[in-house]
């Protein structure tokens, strides 16, 4: 059909342009990071000692403040002792891109320092499971409740004030309580993600439901639809693309609660990995883990967006976005 040919023709150049922008969006911060790491006169507030010279407390490989290094140079010069030699360096908490890039690989291949501790991929899998269950449990209750609140004014009046109140309570505040009730393993972590997601979810989805065009509902009623079928055959399909978008945003929200959730009880998952690596000052691994979280979150969202396009071919918001 003509329309389809036109659409594919139009979408091709714009998709290409979109990819360029996406690439640029990532390239800019990476370039900045490279500049700070590899151009010695940008920042580099430390000096890495290569030869301690006459300074007794310097050791090769040691990082010292630049001012301190200069003081020592002066002292040594006055004392007539051999001068220390060093190169300008960044602090240990800012590894260079290539170190982090290497860590992205080695973090997966290096055995954990403690023998019974999980490998990185096991930690990640554990985190994903916690997110999954927290989000699924929240959605099972939150989505239907949100849709009902958006449809029936009485129900929304009855439930929303409390939900509104509860959503201002920071989810981590319930950490200790969750541990007392649910033990120290995954229970309280899933509970924190649930609390962090659920109350926003009810409000967001109720709002989305309320935005459904009333003409569509009225049209359905004049066609003989009533009661429960209005919800199942009109409201739900009518809001589905928006509901799906809401869920994608809420899932991102759930990820932000992950780190806090995993600190509760026995530290686990990716958070455990990060805290362990930071303890051993393997900051390149810390960065690698943070990047992996980002990749999983962003990647899954891209995937869900693609799936959404397939699922809702009638959704025009997407057309507007890609045009």
């Amino acid at each position: 059909m003509n329309i389809r040919i036109l659409l594919t023709y139009l979408s091709r150049p714009s998709r290409y342009r979109g990819a360029v922008f996406t690439l640029g969006a990532f390239l800019l911060p990476v370039l900045l990071w490279c500049a700070v790491s590899y151009v010695p006169f940008i920042w580099h507030p430390m000096v890495k000692v290569e030869n301690p010279g006459g300074v007794d407390y310097f050791t090769p490989g040691m990082l010292v403040d630049r001012s301190e290094f200069q003081d020592q140079m002066k002292e040594m010069r006055q004392a007539g002792k051999p001068l220390p030699v060093g190169v300008r360096a960044n602090p240990i908490y800012l590894p260079a891109p290539h170190e982090v890039a290497r860590a992205l690989y080695t973090a997966f291949t290096t055995a954990p320092e403690q023998r019974d501790a999980p490998w990185l991929h096991q930690s990640l899998w554990h985190s994903i499971q916690v997110i999954f269950w927290g989000f699924v449990l929240s959605s099972v209750v939150g989505v239907p409740l949100g849709v009902l609140c958006g449809t029936y004014v009485t129900l929304s009046r009855l439930s929303e004030p409390f939900v509104e109140f509860f959503r201002y309570l920071p989810a981590p505040a319930f950490g200790a309580l969750a541990v007392a009730v649910l033990g120290i393993y995954d229970g309280p972590k899933i509970a924190i993600i649930f609390i962090g997601t659920f109350f926003q979810q009810v409000l967001v989805i109720a709002n989305t439901t309320r935005k459904l065009d009333t003409t569509i509902l009225e049209a359905a009623r004049t066609l003989g639809t009533r009661g429960w079928r209005l919800i199942t055959h009109v409201v739900v399909p009518g809001i589905l693309p928006d509901l799906y978008r809401d869920q994608r945003i809420l899932l991102g929200w759930a990820w932000t609660y992950l780190i806090v959730a995993e600190l509760i009880g026995t530290s686990s998952g990716i958070t455990w990995f990060i805290t362990q690596q930071a303890r051993y000052q393997h900051f390149e691994n810390v960065y690698a883990a943070i990047i992996i979280i980002g990749v999983i979150g962003f990647g899954s969202d891209l995937l869900f967006e693609r799936i959404g396009r397939r699922l809702f071919p009638w959704d025009r918001t997407q057309e507007r976005k890609s045009a």
Partner: peptide
């Protein structure tokens, strides 16, 4: 009810 059909001014078709 279905005994009275209605055509609205705005677009009232089910977009999905």
């Amino acid at each position: 009810g279905r005994d009275r059909g209605m055509v609205f001014q705005g677009y009232s078709l089910f977009p999905w």
